[in-house]
Amino acid sequence: MSDDRVYPVSIEVNGTLREAQVPARLTLVDFLRDTLRLTGTHAGCEHGICGACSVLLDGEPVRSCIMYAVQADGRKVTTIEGLAQPDGRPGALQDAFCEAHATQCGYCTPGMVIAAHALLETNPAPAEQEIREAIGGNLCRCTGYQQIVDAIKLAAGKNTGNAA
């Protein structure tokens, strides 16, 4: 039963094509973390509830713990590392998270930033309730969500040229 056949996958991750041979049961989060060593994506519950493992799949936020790497073959994945500036410094949304101190332990943060990024891509000026719905599938135990909501408002304000 431990005979794990491997399958070729070819996934564009943060703009770079990555190819590997993986067992079918390898989840996308484990592929990103263990195979590619992109450890910014975190596993929190591994059953699709907490949202810590959120990544963008072809631009849409998904939970990488309830998706196998083979299912992402031929698709584009963006992780938290891919939202930083090319030199690794925080991108605009990440910078807003710093300004509002929207993180404490940092464990849920990558998933939150991914969820917020996806929201702002489709809704550049969200209302507070829309922000809460967009991050409603991402659990945070440190912040009570207040400063995360503030950070997303701040980023939206910069997006639309309005102060938050």
Partner: peptide
């Protein structure tokens, strides 16, 4: 139905 992330899949 679930959340944004699950409805995307």
């Amino acid at each position: 139905v679930g959340h944004v992330q699950t409805r995307n899949r």
